[in-house]
């Protein structure tokens, strides 16, 4: 098996982030220092449950909204938007 890349480069709100393979998009968002989303009344939020049931980690990944970032692995060149 070929050696995989040591890091994966992606962007979160245009902020460049590098993570190890196997890292989740939620982790990348926190590494970028961003909240994952803004609540119905505008509060900044971050992941709570880490397992895909609280929906606080929802982010737009490569144009598709409301994805549970804690269950999605980072891939090279991913464009993540939080809001």
């Amino acid at each position: 098996m070929r050696e995989t890349a040591q890091t994966i480069a992606l962007t979160v709100n245009d902020i460049p982030v590098t993570v190890a393979p196997g890292a989740t998009v939620a982790a990348a968002i926190l590494i970028a220092g961003e909240p994952t989303r803004r609540s119905a009344t505008g509060e900044p939020r971050g992941p709570l449950c880490g397992m895909g049931i609280c929906f606080e980690c929802r982010a737009t990944i490569d144009g598709i909204a409301h994805q549970r970032s804690c269950q999605i692995l980072c891939t090279t060149g991913m464009k993540v938007r939080t809001g």
Binding site: A20, A23, G50, C70
Partner: peptide, 19 residues
């Protein structure tokens, strides 16, 4: 509801997920 308040299993899962 502040960012960085998580479940106990929640933070553990995030760390396993590269945090």
């Amino acid at each position: 509801t502040l960012p960085y308040v998580m479940g106990a299993g929640g933070l553990d899962a995030m760390v396993r997920g590269g945090l």
